[in-house]
Amino acid sequence: MDKTVPSLVAAVSGIGDGATVMIGGFGGSGAPIELIHALIDRFVATGHPKDLTIVNNNAGNGHVGLAALIEQRMARKLICSFPRSADPRVFTDLYLSGEIELELVPQGTLAERIRAGGAGIPAFYTPTAYGTDLAAGKPIEVFDGRPYVQERWLRADFAIVKAHRGDRHGNLTYNKAARNFNPLMCTAAATTIAQVSEIVAPGEIDPEAVVTPGIFVQALVAVADPQQEEVLNRAGARHP
């Protein structure tokens, strides 16, 4: 078994118009910058993919990574918890002019909706958001005297994630707090594409250390020295 793909271009080639794409990371930590940029490059060259629904905790920062994807108007809709950042202008301008749709989800509910999607649980109840605007229209149920809000699972056509090491079977480890949403998104997409700093032979990752088992990963691409969104932004970078 070898899930390795030869290039970033090949890794994102199957993502089509209208797809729902989960993008890992929390701010820049764990964001698969190179995979996002490969997707943007394809759009700039071919006009596809477009009309994407993007799932991420945030809405990008500056003019690289997710912000650059939004800036190209590749996304029709964003599902996120916190569309603010040090420099959120790209999303803010499109949102205020009505050119991108926002589904705002509390952060823990976003994580649980993705987890539920990966686990085959179509809905669940949470105390989060009860009595607030973000629970409007959702079913409420009382359990043991306390009200809870029904939330639906989130699933995606694709997840693009950043991990640290991966073996050819797709078993993944992460670097520090860069795991955040990445392991959840791997479980909730029909096709998960992971960029990793190093691809190793099966057996070289201690099974005790595997965070994402390879069953959740369909494609693996090596990016030896991945860029950090924060570093790019401090340098004033833009993509493309």
Partner: peptide, 28 residues
Amino acid sequence: EDWDLINAGKKAVTLNPGAAFFHHADSF
């Protein structure tokens, strides 16, 4: 700074002895 080691405010942090990492579903 290690930009894989940040807090919820996206600021760089360090670790104390006995620190642990976990994914977002465990966090919540």
